[in-house]
Simulated assay, not measured.
Amino acid sequence: MIGRVPGDDLADLVRSWQDALEALEHDVQVAERMLTGPLDADAATSAGAGAWLPPQPRGPIPDALVARARDLLRRQAVVREGLTRAIEQTRVGLAQLRPADRAPAYVDISA
């Protein structure tokens, strides 16, 4: 961490960053579950609840939390790649469901 932070302020800073990382880790966990299968009702409800606001910790990240933040960043990158693949697979699947360019066919059921 750049500079020195007095003891109580350091404890507050660490708590602030821990809270921020926990919130981001929760979001990544939900996204990871979305990529591996259907979500349970509670997770599905919280997955898109409200507008996302970035956490706003008070100051630079403490050295003790840097490794945790880097791991979170790695997990976010994996999720981003997985979501990109899932979106492309959805596009392909939707394209296959669209009717072919041909004249409509009707069946006469009155005969």
Rank of each mutant, 00 (worst) to 15 (best):
V78F: 11
R75M: 09
G7D: 14
V78N: 08
R68A: 15
Y106I: 07
R68D: 14
R102V: 07
T45H: 12
P54Q: 01
I109C: 15
I87P: 01
A44I: 00
L21Y: 08
Q18I: 05
L13R: 14
A51W: 05
D42Q: 12
L24F: 06
G7M: 04
S110H: 11
A103I: 04
A111F: 13
A51N: 00
A105L: 13
A103E: 12
E32W: 05
P38W: 03
G3Y: 06
R68H: 13
R80V: 02
T90W: 00
R70F: 12
D108F: 12
D40V: 03
P57S: 04
S46M: 14
D12L: 13
I2Y: 13
H26V: 10
R98D: 13
W52N: 05
S110W: 11
D40Q: 04
D101K: 00
L72P: 05
Q56F: 10
Q89S: 04
D12N: 12
W17K: 00
G50Y: 08
V5A: 12
A51H: 05
P62S: 08
V92K: 00
R70H: 15
L21G: 06
T36K: 02
D19G: 14
D42A: 12
P55Q: 01
R85P: 00
R58P: 04
Q29K: 02
A41D: 09
R70Y: 13
V28T: 12
L35S: 07
A105Y: 11
D101T: 02
A43F: 08
V28M: 09
E25L: 04
V30W: 03
V66F: 08
A23L: 11
P99I: 00
R98E: 13
A11F: 14
D12Y: 09
A11N: 07
D63G: 13
L24W: 09
G93T: 00
E88C: 01
R68C: 13
S110A: 09
L94Y: 05
Q56C: 02
R102W: 06
G37K: 00
P60S: 10
P104Q: 00
R98N: 04
V5K: 08
L65Q: 01
V28W: 10
G59N: 02
